[in-house]
Amino acid sequence: MPRITLVEFNGTDHTIDAEVGKSLMLNAIDNGIPGIDADCGGACACGTCHVFVEPGWQAVSGESNGLENAMLSMRPDQADNSRLSCQIEVTDDMDGMVVRMPEYQM
């Protein structure tokens, strides 16, 4: 199981053993990580699982698709490293990956 660290806006970090094949969002929910609200349940329809993928891990997290890009374009805090964690499928290559959560998801 890859170990992934999710960092809250206030700097509190949470390292989880993530299950391969599940989304990062579901892994966060399963581990009780605050700041990943997932109001739409992973349907890529709300943006409440927004994360910033740390440099060096963007290629490993995969490419965003048109629907994800549309959701992210509505966010005032969108950045080049923005992703919706519901759209990131965990792989073994993500061992050590770090993502940060935006301020509004505290």
Rank of each mutant, 00 (worst) to 15 (best):
N81Q: 10
E19C: 02
A43N: 14
S82M: 09
A59D: 13
D93M: 10
P76G: 11
A18E: 02
P76R: 11
C44V: 11
A59L: 14
I29P: 00
T5P: 02
D93A: 15
I36S: 00
A79C: 11
Y104S: 10
M101E: 07
A45P: 03
E103Y: 12
N65C: 11
W57L: 03
I88L: 09
L84S: 03
V60N: 08
N69R: 12
V51D: 08
V20I: 13
N31F: 00
V20S: 06
M97G: 02
S73R: 04
M74E: 06
I16S: 00
C86Q: 06
V20G: 02
P76H: 13
N65S: 10
V53N: 08
P2R: 07
D30V: 07
E8F: 03
N81R: 11
G66T: 09
C86G: 03
V99Q: 10
S61N: 09
T12K: 15
I88A: 00
D17I: 11
D39V: 07
P76M: 10
G41Y: 12
A28Q: 06
M94C: 02
A43L: 13
F9P: 15
A70R: 14
E89K: 15
C40M: 03
E89V: 14
V51L: 09
P102R: 01
N10W: 04
E8M: 15
A28N: 01
S85H: 09
I33N: 02
